[in-house]
């Protein structure tokens, strides 16, 4: 009988402490953001899929050396390049990223000798079309960005 009283009293104290903490938390500022209406800005080091960083003329700095292709652990990069007449180095003609298998490790960005690629800050990436991610054309993306400018 004594034990029951002890349990009830103990339970009541625990309940009061719990409710006290809940009440205190109730008046705290919210810790979340209302996502579709407001969203957070990504930090400078945020790693989303790679994109080209253009030079002063808006062209790609990629020299199609294939170092990123070899560094990638998931073989998700495909690069084609050609040597244009009069140019000293090769230039890129096709750069495809298979984002469905990319693990965003950053090996390609680290190894790039000309700093031609960098992480984008895009994170609202959803599409009913898988092909959009299976063949992400970085050259086309750069063209589009240049056009928007």
């Amino acid at each position: 009988m004594n034990n029951i009283f002890k349990d009830v009293a103990g339970g009541f104290i625990s309940l009061m402490i719990g409710m006290g903490i809940t009440l205190k938390e109730f008046f705290r500022k919210p810790v979340t953001v209302h996502y579709p209406r407001e969203s957070l800005k990504m930090t400078p080091r945020y790693r989303s899929h790679i994109i080209f960083t253009p030079d002063e003329d808006g062209a790609s700095k990629c020299i199609a050396c294939n170092m990123c292709v070899n560094a990638c652990p998931s073989q998700c990069i495909y690069v084609e390049g050609e040597k244009k007449e009069g140019a000293r180095k090769k230039s890129v003609t096709k750069y495809e990223l298979n984002f469905t298998t990319c693990s965003l490790c950053g090996a390609c960005v680290e190894v790039c000798p000309t700093d031609a690629i960098d992480f984008s800050k895009r994170y609202n990436l959803a599409s009913p079309d898988k092909e959009r991610f299976r063949r992400m054309d970085l050259c086309k993306d750069l063209e589009e960005r240049n056009r928007k400018k």
Binding site: T43, R45, Y46, R47, L104, G106, F119
Partner: peptide, 9 residues
């Protein structure tokens, strides 16, 4: 995330 660029991996 600010340091490494990722939240888990």
């Amino acid at each position: 995330e600010a340091l490494t660029g990722a939240r888990l991996t």
